[in-house]
């Protein structure tokens, strides 16, 4: 049979020699191997301090994007909800009132935008469906929680920081989104 990989080794079933039969020598060799491992590099990642880098195509928790002036990009068109195979997204649209131009980018906006993280399968189809560049999957996990209710993420949980009040955090979140975009193209 042709082997699938080059790594296969045939098992040596020849009878043991006398030296091998008393095992002491082989045990000694084995112990040398384990001893040499003491000085090898440790493979552990010290988790809370160090983290493993995410792959560029990683799909984690969703974020709702803002533009440079801090206005929400989402217009509550519902395409993401339609695209979602797990039916995790619900939204309620509302009309922008005069004087809210600094909050919402277009005349219509999402008054309620909820993603049920227990339903979500993190497929990323919402991201692809969005025509307004508003929803992105970030690089974090949904943290554990005690109740089902707390897994329904509303707008306050999803929106990225406002550039007007928190410019630093906004820049960071934006950078992640840019990285994401680059990996997609």
């Amino acid at each position: 049979m042709q082997s699938l990989t080059q790594r296969a080794k045939s098992v040596d079933r020849s009878p043991l020699s006398w030296l091998e039969k008393i095992y002491v020598w082989n045990i000694f060799k084995g112990m040398l191997i384990t001893f040499s491992h003491i000085f090898k590099k440790k493979v552990t990642i010290q988790y809370p301090e160090q983290t493993r880098p995410f792959s560029p195509v990683f799909r984690g928790l969703h974020v709702l994007n803002r533009d440079e002036e801090g206005r929400e990009r989402c217009t509550a068109c519902g395409l993401c909800a339609v695209a979602c195979p797990a039916e995790a997204i619900t939204m309620e649209a509302a009309e922008r009132l005069p004087g809210e131009e600094n909050l919402y980018r277009e005349e219509k906006y999402a008054a309620r935008y909820e993603i049920n993280m227990l339903r979500c399968i993190f497929c990323g189809l919402c991201e692809e469906a969005c025509p307004k560049d508003a929803v992105y999957l970030s690089e974090t996990f949904a943290p554990a929680n005690y109740s089902r209710k707390s897994f329904i993420y509303g707008k306050p949980d999803l929106l990225i920081p406002d550039p007007v009040t928190k410019p630093e955090e906004y820049k960071e979140a934006k950078g992640l989104i840019e990285k994401k975009k680059k990996s997609k193209s």
């Binding site: 384990t34 001893f35 491992h37 003491i38 090898k40 590099k41 440790k42 493979v43 552990t44 010290q46």
Partner: peptide, 10 residues
């Protein structure tokens, strides 16, 4: 500790 070191852990 010894177990860790021998198994490439801390």
């Amino acid at each position: 500790k010894v177990a860790g070191f021998i198994q490439d852990r801390h």
